[in-house]
Structure formats: C-alpha cells, structure tokens
C-alpha cells in the first residue's frame, strides 16, 4: 500500500457514466496503468478517496463487487465542490483514486445463511457491492431479500438493476417510496422503509439470517428496533458508517466515532458495536 500512503492516487480513466437520478451518477473507472490494475484488489465494503485534480478529494465506497474485475464503480450525488466537478466530467477523462481503505463485510462468515439487505436512498451503493458479490456466488447463500426505499420514485438509484433483481427467482426485492413519492404507474410498496420491513416481517426469518442496513441516520434509527423485534441479534446486523474524511488512513483526525476510526475500524460495524459507540456519526 506504499503508493496510497503517500497520498498519491492511481490514475483512473472514466470508462462509462450512467445517470441514476437527476443528481446521482455512477462512474465505471479503469486503471490508466494496466499493471496497477492487475495488482489491485479490494473486498466488499471498502471505500476510496476519489479526486478531481485541482478540486480535491472526496470519499465514497466502491460500489461494484470484487467479483467483477478490471474496473471499479462509484456512485455519488452532486453535492459539494468535488462531486460537482466530478459530475461535469465525460468518459475518457482521468480522475484520481486512492484505496482500497477500511474493513469489509465478512461475507465468508455469512455462507449458508439467509441475507436481508435494507437500504434507503443514496445508501444503496455500498450495499450494491455486497449484493452483487453474494449474487455472483449465489449457491453459497440461503434466501436473499432486498428491501430498498427512497423518498420518491425519481430518487431510486440503480433502476435497471432493481428491475433485474425483481425478475430473478432467487432474490426477493421489496421496493418502496415514501408516501407521496409514488407515480401513477408505481407498482412497489408505499411507506417508510422500517414500516415496510415490519409489514414484510412474516416472510423474513431472523434465524440463520444476517441483516445489512444502510441508509440515512433516521432510517437506521427506526430500523434497528424492527429488526430486534424480529429476533435479530445485534451481532448479526451490519451497517456501514460515513463520516467526513480526508486521509482515509487514520491520521487526519476527523472521522472518529469515540475511539474508533471509521476509516480504519470501519466503515462496516455491527449493531452490537454501535451500541457501545457514542452518537458521533
């Protein structure tokens, strides 16, 4: 990792850009230097520092699964200085990438178990990596259920992939939008993610099931009690935290939640861990 430690990024070529929503894009990035690409590996749950030269760096997870090699993908919303600049780039342009950083979703420990994925809004990207990762190794896992919601139909990301998951017989997808966010032809659920999860509960067994929850703090807050009621043990509920970061390597001093570095000890934490951590995220 000596390269990443000097803060010198890999040079990545933007191969493909997909518009997810009016302000959310997914970029597929390939290594400018093929050798670097061959030596690069990551595991699901990890993140990186993406940079537009002259504007700065910003932090997102790697949204593609490690089972798809030769590229990485990131999904981001145009919000700050760097993501605005990133949004303005075209395929073929070069950006920087440092990583992979952080810990992982322990998917090998999950083999043989059922998986329940719960995500809200722009928090699907970190989960997309792990979802595709387990789908690519489908035979190793039990039932797979995905509950995904957003404020409105327009805010749902990865619409093509949602359609693909909905069409698969080996995945159960429940998609929902907040009340008022539906369109006339919306066929999914209407309601907040925790409510919809509660409604779907009879179909979800907590025994031998691991839950992964990603979403805005308020969604997480109301989802944990529902899962607890369903019988999920705190150590079987996983989430991934976000905090403002600069270095990604445990030095710049701002991402900590209590004594834990989100960049080193996380971003993946279990609910059991979160219960012992202060509310600094």
């Amino acid at each position: 990792m000596s390269m990443a430690d000097s803060f010198k990024p890999y040079l990545m070529k933007i191969e493909q850009i997909s518009d997810e929503t009016p302000d959310v894009k997914t970029m597929r990035l390939v290594f400018s230097d093929e050798r670097e690409g061959k030596n690069f590996s990551f595991r699901t749950g990890q993140f990186g520092e993406y940079s537009v030269f002259g504007e700065g760096e910003c932090t997102f997870c790697i949204a593609s699964p490690p089972t798809r090699q030769g590229y990485i993908e990131c999904t981001f919303r145009k919000a700050g200085r760097v993501t605005s600049a990133l949004s303005g780039l075209e395929p073929g342009e070069i950006i920087g990438f440092r990583g992979p950083y952080g810990n992982i979703f322990p998917i090998s420990d999950w083999e043989g178990k059922n998986l329940l994925f719960i995500a809200g809004g722009i928090a699907l990207p970190p989960m997309r990596s792990v979802i595709w990762n387990v789908l690519d190794l489908r035979e190793r896992y039990g039932n797979i259920t995905i509950v995904y919601g957003a404020r409105t139909v327009a805010d749902l990301v990865y619409k093509r992939e949602l359609a693909e998951w909905a069409g698969r017989s080996d995945v159960k997808l429940i998609s929902t939008v907040d009340p008022g966010g539906e369109t006339p032809d919306w066929k999914g659920e209407i309601g907040f993610v925790p409510t919809v999860l509660g409604r779907a509960a009879p179909a979800i067994a907590s025994r031998d099931t691991v839950a992964v929850v990603c979403g805005p703090p308020v969604m997480i807050k109301f989802t944990f009690p529902v899962l607890t009621k369903l019988g999920f043990k705190p150590e079987n509920i996983f989430t991934t935290l976000e905090n403002r970061m600069k270095c990604g390597v445990g030095k710049c001093g701002r991402c900590n939640v209590g004594k834990y570095f989100v960049c080193k000890d996380g971003p993946v934490f279990t609910f059991a861990q979160l219960k012992d951590m202060p509310q600094e995220y």
């Binding site: 803060f7 940079s51 537009v52 030269f53 002259g54 504007e55 700065g56 760096e57 600069k246 270095c247 030095k251 710049c252 001093g253 701002r254």
Partner: peptide
C-alpha cells in the same frame, strides 16, 4: 496536535496540499 486537511490548488496545473486543521 496533528489533525490535517487535504486541499487542491492551482486548477489544472497545481498541487495537492496538506495543511493544518
């Protein structure tokens, strides 16, 4: 105290800087 920020300056031909925070 060693907390720091990372900032880009100089547009297309510039520097990535580390500075105190």
């Amino acid at each position: 105290c060693a907390c720091f920020d990372i900032q880009d300056e100089g547009g297309g031909s510039g520097q990535r800087l580390r500075c105190w925070d």
